[in-house]
């Protein structure tokens, strides 16, 4: 069984110093080169699957120069077997589409049974490599995978995937399939031992080169900008109204206050207050409708 894990190396901006405006709020030392947490989870899932299958070969596939080399070695030390690097010409700027085209070409050579990638990276959070890979390769794709069970002699995977609002969809799919994993959902709890490190040092980087000439890049990054949040629309007084109406609106319309109401006094009044508050915010309706449903089924 061959599992390919797409690993993204990111230049993670972890904090704003707020001290250096020229550098767009981010000082150089504010960044670290690391493996995207979602990719790490993808590796975690791959390790788990291999354990279930009893055997298997985990290949790491990364795109571009090895900027976080040591961290990639750590991934190898954690249990991956091979490392493939898709080399691109230095100058080419890639968008999600061209990246997925390149990756899918590489995957064409790898003959994978399972392709696992992170769902959204921590830096750009485009969240589309997985589905796009599936599209290019003509494979099914399951997003937000939590857990995988192999059935039918490792030819079919029964995947538990998040389906929003805490629901879990159990999806059955024949291999090969593309799975995407959210950051933190398959944490790797062990750390590499000395032997693992030693072994990882001996894994060669297998480079693959594809011509980017034919690949269209539709989305280009123009610039990175300092945080200037887009105005949150709060109702500004309508100018068609007369001044006193505008004043009234102004004096009632500002909603930036985060000073909650305080309930003091006797318990009964407080409980009333809480219930009224919950009701006003619409938290009671589901309960009441649940009650309604129960009533029907009971009757």
């Amino acid at each position: 069984m061959k599992i390919v894990v797409c690993i993204k190396q990111v230049l993670h901006t972890y904090a704003r110093t707020g001290m250096d405006l020229q550098d767009r709020y981010v000082a150089p030392e504010d960044r670290v080169r690391m493996i995207d947490p979602a990719s790490e989870s993808a590796l975690g899932l791959a390790l788990k699957i291999r354990e279930l299958a009893g055997e298997g070969n985990i290949c790491l596939l990364t795109l571009g120069p090895l900027t976080a080399g040591e961290e990639l070695r750590r991934c190898l030390a954690l249990g991956a077997d091979q490392l493939y690097q898709v080399d691109v010409d230095g100058g080419a700027e890639l968008d999600s589409r061209s990246k997925s085209v390149l990756l899918s070409r590489a995957l064409g050579h790898l003959d994978a049974d399972l392709i696992i990638c992170g769902r959204e990276s921590i830096d750009t959070a485009n969240g589309q490599i997985g589905p796009r890979l599936a599209g290019h390769l003509g494979l099914p794709c399951v997003a937000s995978v939590r857990d995988v069970r192999l059935v039918d002699g490792c030819r079919t995977a029964e995947v538990r995937a998040g389906a929003g609002r805490g629901r879990v969809a159990v999806v059955s799919c024949r291999l090969p399939v593309v799975l995407t994993v959210e950051a933190g959902s398959a944490a790797i709890e062990h750390i590499p031992s000395v032997d693992d490190w030693r072994r990882s040092r001996q894994v060669p980087v297998q480079r693959m080169f594809f011509d980017t000439a034919g690949i269209a890049t539709g989305v280009l990054r123009e610039e990175i900008i300092a945080p200037r949040p887009r105005p949150k629309i709060v109702p500004a007084p309508d100018c068609g109204l007369d001044a006193f109406a505008r004043i009234d609106l102004l004096l009632t319309g500002s909603n930036v206050e985060k000073k909650g109401e305080m309930l003091v006094g006797d318990i009964e009044r407080q409980v009333d207050g809480i219930i009224a508050f919950l009701d006003a915010h619409g938290f009671l309706e589901p309960l009441q409708s649940a009650a309604g449903r129960e009533g029907v089924s009971g009757g």
């Binding site: 981010v26 921590i122 539709g218 900008i225 945080p227």
Partner: peptide, 13 residues
Amino acid sequence: VANGYLFERLRCT
């Protein structure tokens, strides 16, 4: 981008 710390402007051609 960058976990919400920065913003990027993209051009879609």
